[in-house]
Write a protein that binds this DNA or RNA. Structure first.
Length: 422
RNA sequence: GGAGAGUUGGCUGAGUGGUCGAAAGCAGCGCUUUGCUAAAGCGCCAUACCUCAAAAGGGUAUCGAGGGUUCAAAUCCCUCACUCUCCGCCA
């Protein structure tokens, strides 16, 4: 969440920047300030009452120690109790209101973020490789059926639409891609591998920003107040929640592969066949915890680490930067990486690399001790490195051969074990 | 699932219902001593919020979380979460 002091001291800056996301956010800022005023007023009154009670109680202690009569004071203090109770309730009400509004307010876009209303305004930052020249490309569904890579009907029968079973060489390709990515990031890029739980508590999701605003995207586990993770970002970023890190600890670099569970309520295209949008998919996630000074440079290297996956697999891709109107809820700056899908004749988003600034750190109380010994909020970053199903799609569509087989790119062969699926 | 013991600052760890935001040690920071390293001595060192134009200062809260008892709770009572030990059960 945003720093209330920033909002208080510089409301116009906050409004201007938030308006680039959506003009509807501007009145919310005013509402937050209003509750902030009430909260502080009521808090001050409460503190004064508490102070009086504390002081008088000490006096009583002093009188009793001397064996003197304290009954008059005791009666006086007793009366303060009711007042305190009332002020406590009033303060809590204002505090809750303010907090709720703050938790639902998105992060400020970075000052250099491209301004725009929606995805059509996202500038292309760079393009790597070229569109493969495939005369009559099959799409991944056709290829998968021919080669026995996955089974949608059976997955649907057991779990409902939007689920997939990988089969035979498809399951092996999925596993090979996962191991290829994990080994690349741990051995070449210096990330520490973690294998987190796939189930988290509510607080963790509040910490990374999925809750309270995006509850309808999550699978909840009842009767416990637990949720299936929509991305490894949640457990991995929360690894250090409520901790005080030292400067020498930073940057922290983690990589994790987990399934991601998304209800995709109301999402366009969930009805379409294929692997493009499913309720459960594997994803390699890169997470960094950095100092504010380094975080934007760390975003560049993180993005390049995700790109390395596509480069090694010989997949044509482009990097775009999200404009203010398209930026994710907690992000200040985001690069999306889109891989070319010859079968769909379109770009597919396989990675989204973001710097959240201190937005998440503030929500989960993640700090570090700086060179002056002051405690400051860390900056958090994450990016996919990469999402598996779409990588799978791009790979088999790009490397399909005229005879209907799929060539395995050389870099992947040590993990897949064969040079071709046929 | 049963029985018991715990949860205190960055870490370890004392703590009597009242002067306890909390002993001591470690780590960290500063100074002194020192040929270097090391060691020793002295001092500083929790967080959030409120107040103040700001700084200084002042104040309130926080000893796992939430309730309760009391003039007053780290300390007493209740509920919950978590940790550890033993027993049982189980992949």
């Amino acid at each position: 969440m945003l720093d209330i002091r920033l909002i208080r001291e510089n409301p116009e800056l906050v409004k201007t920047r938030l308006a680039t996301r959506s003009p509807a956010l501007v009145p919310v800022v005013d509402s937050i300030l209003e509750w902030d005023g009430r909260r502080r007023k009521s808090e001050t009154a409460l503190q004064e009452a508490n102070g009086t009670r504390k002081r008088l109680s000490k006096e009583i202690g002093g009188l009793r120690a001397k064996g003197a009569d304290s009954s008059a004071l005791e009666t006086e203090v007793k009366g303060i109790g009711g007042e305190i109770e009332h002020l406590e309730a009033q303060t809590r009400e204002a505090d809750d209101q303010q907090r709720e509004l703050l938790l639902n307010l998105p992060n400020l876009p970075h000052e250099n973020a491209p301004i725009g209303e929606d995805a059509t305004a996202n500038p292309v930052v760079r393009i790597w490789g070229e569109k493969p020249d495939i005369p009559h490309p099959l799409d991944h569904i056709q290829l998968g059926e021919k080669l026995g890579l996955f089974d949608f009907p059976r997955a649907t029968r057991m779990s409902g639409s939007g689920f997939v079973v990988f089969t035979g060489p498809g399951a092996r390709l999925e596993r090979a891609l996962i191991n290829f990515c994990l080994d690349l990031h741990t051995e070449k890029h210096g990330y520490t591998e973690v294998a987190p739980p796939f189930v988290v508590k509510r607080d963790s999701l509040v910490g990374t920003g999925q809750l309270p605003k995006f509850a309808d995207q999550l699978y909840a586990i009842s009767p416990e107040d637990l949720f299936l993770i929509p991305t490894a970002e949640v457990p991995v970023t929360n690894l250090h929640r409520e901790e005080l890190l030292t400067l020498a600890d930073l940057p922290k670099k983690y990589v994790a592969c987990t399934p991601c569970f998304r209800s995709e309520a109301g999402a366009a295209g969930i009805g379409t066949r294929g692997l493009i949008r499913v309720h459960q998919f594997d994803k390699i996630e890169l997470v960094k915890i950095a100092t504010p000074e380094e975080s934007f440079a760390e975003l560049e290297t993180l993005t390049s680490h995700a790109e390395a996956v596509l480069q090694k697999l010989g997949l044509h891709y482009r990097v775009i930067e999200l404009c203010t109107g398209d930026l994710g809820f907690g992000s200040m700056k985001t690069y999306d990486i889109e891989v070319w899908s010859p079968g769909q004749n379109t770009w597919l988003e396989v990675s989204s690399c973001s710097n959240f600034g201190d937005y998440q750190a503030r929500r989960m109380s993640l700090k570090y001790k700086d060179a002056e010994g002051k405690n400051r909020f860390c900056h958090t970053l994450n990016g996919s490195g990469t999402a598996m199903p779409r990588l799978f799609v791009a790979l088999i569509e790009t490397w399909q051969q005229a005879d209907g087989s799929v060539l395995i790119p050389e870099a992947l062969r040590p993990w897949f074990g064969k040079d071709r699926i046929s």
